[in-house]
Amino acid sequence: MELKLNEFARCLQMPVTTIERWIRQGRIPAKKIGDSCVFSDTALKKWARTHNLSFCLPDEKQEEKPDQKMETLSEAIDRGGIYYDIAGDTVEQVIDSAVSAMQQLGSDTARRVLYESLVAREQMMSTGIGNGVAVPHPRTPLSNSGIADQMAACFLEKPVDFKAVDKKPVHVLFVLVATTARQHLHLLSRLSFCLRDNSFLALLSQRPEPETLRNKMAEFDQRLNNGE
């Protein structure tokens, strides 16, 4: 086979200077002709394996997992949905009704798993982050439950004492479900950006229409994407 020197170096993920030196010193089973390298594909793969290097030709780049696309708030809320009048007097009850209300959870088993992990998380420490908002989420990502990344906004029927940090009763839940820890942190950081904004808090306390809330979140997404 024949490849340009720099392509060849890229296949081995080494600097061109190193590869050139190795060829010159005869340490690698390849020959240099002009600016190109001539080598046998199989021999080189075998060599790379025994030397703790990786070699893959440009056209057979391993299926790199496409860098997981990070969700925006609007995408997550589209999948999770917006729900009103979630009933219940205690933390468990509200979470139960919220999980029941959420539509995109798949099987009943998944629903129960989610409920149990949300409650377990609350028992550890409240997710009430103040200003009447709580963000219930599982402690570890539910990667094998079959639940997609999503965020559900659940407006409660009546405020519930969530043992929040500021001791205020909670009137809205954002249930966060993520398949990876990174995705979870990403969504949480985006959400917390919104919740620092007073106009957003004011909007939440008015129980906005789904459309209004979505528009507001899309606006925040825009601002975040612009690098704020």
């Binding site: 080494m14 025994t50 030397h51 703790n52 290097l53």
Partner: peptide
């Protein structure tokens, strides 16, 4: 990393 690579290439 590089040192190990080099060492392996030089010795194996």
């Amino acid at each position: 990393d590089k040192y190990r690579n080099e060492l392996m290439v030089q010795t194996l």
